[in-house]
Design a binder for these strands. Structure first.
Lengths: 233, 233
DNA sequence: TAGTGGTCTAGACCACCGG
DNA sequence: CGGTGGTCTAGACCACTAT
């Protein structure tokens, strides 16, 4: 028995990945347990665990206690993208950032917002509509609802000076959230606010976040024509 | 000195996160080294490492050897989304999947494709245009270039039966890639293929992948009106 | 209830990079 | 060159869940 070699968990991961692509395991089949793979690959179990965690994150395998590691019959591609604070995003392109608070009120969230939060609770929330500008031109139009129960401090913020987007990123933690992206046609009202023509194709992002089971914020943001979102794999 | 408590790295992460949100550290400031935090939080250094890795993944801090851990002055939100095999995506909605190979050829990649791959190489690649159908209606129109140098086996695949999308996900590994999302207006030709009207807002995805420094594939996919992409944080 | 992945610890060495 | 994060090991115990 030779001593375990010093090797990166990435190499272990790639060796396992290659074994999978070689067809050694059938889709849905159970792979050897970590401990056995560690022996076979001559490394510590923690190293196999790290490699497997990465393959699971990548969507190639599924891992369950007691159920073992199985090869996903429907492998997916997972990608990560970054959503910067809007001001940073604009300034990062060398443009001058502008911000305009359009409306602010307290109201019971309408049905669509309650549905996004997956709740029936009609407790009033903070409703904010704002426009982000790049070199004085419309860049992003946001319609946001913020839970004052979960984020009580938001009440003391002057949202005509600081955007809710920026304040929340810097001051509010959340545990998880959903995002939806789509393409929509500009209606007359939106076209007016975005200084474009009715019928233009607009990129729309919707984001809902929670802190554990408590709603934090829901935002629907409409980007100006030409907007491109970038992500990495 | 009490013995280290048994606590999850998530709790350690949240305690550090809360300390950051409390304003204990200024943006750009250097945080204590892992070893010191471990002592302060009464846990092993590896646990702090795991917690910090997560905060770095989340975009809140930056970590550098020798340079220590610094609070990002421009925190970002990172989200992950899954790109399933198109067939699975369609069937997962209970619809019948259809696939139609429109064109297939070998040609030198045009300038735009070379730019996406960040190369000047004009070695011929496999060019494939195909249409994915959901219940016999256009679902996704893809225009793909595949490197025959990096993916030689693709030459032996009958792409009129198996979509390149599916074959690549199941058989080709890649190391990294870029994605771009945008909203575009349907031109006459596209509208015809997608069975929609000219001027409709369409969701467009572009993906480029590499295996180390070698190009794998570039695809530009146009989704039918109403398409929504989903992601999680 | 037993088996498997998930996490924690303590210690060690490595890799990178700022001074 | 020295300091810091990154990784590895060996062993232990915990948490979840298939059987």
């Amino acid at each position: 028995m030779t001593a375990p070699e010093r090797q990166s968990w990435r190499k272990i991961r790639d060796r396992i990945h290659d074994a999978i692509l070689s067809g050694r395991f059938a889709p849905g089949e159970r792979l050897p347990r970590d401990a056995d793979l560690a022996t076979e690959l001559n490394c510590a179990r923690a190293t196999v665990q790290r490699a497997m965690q990465d393959l699971a994150d990548a969507g190639l395998v599924e891992r369950r206690r007691r159920g073992g590691t199985t090869l996903r019959p429907d492998p997916v591609t997972r990608a990560t993208f970054e959503i910067p604070v809007i001001r940073r995003e604009v300034e990062g392109r060398g443009a001058r950032y502008g911000y305009q608070l359009l409306r602010q009120s307290r109201a019971a969230p309408p049905r669509a917002i309650r549905a996004a939060f997956d709740t029936f609770d009609t407790t009033p929330m903070l409703h904010v509509e704002a426009l982000h500008l790049s070199d004085a031109r419309p860049y992003l139009l946001e319609d946001r609802w913020i839970s004052m129960d979960t984020v009580p401090n938001i009440a003391s913020i002057d949202l005509s000076r600081t955007s809710a987007n920026e304040w929340l990123v810097l001051n509010q933690r959340y545990s998880h959230g959903n995002l939806h992206f789509s393409a929509e046609t500009a209606d007359a009202k939106t076209a007016g606010l975005m200084a474009t023509n009715e019928g233009a194709a607009l990129f729309v992002m919707e984001r809902t976040t929670w802190l554990e089971s408590a709603p934090v914020t829901h935002v629907r943001a409409i980007a100006a024509p030409g907007y491109r979102m970038h992500a990495r794999i």
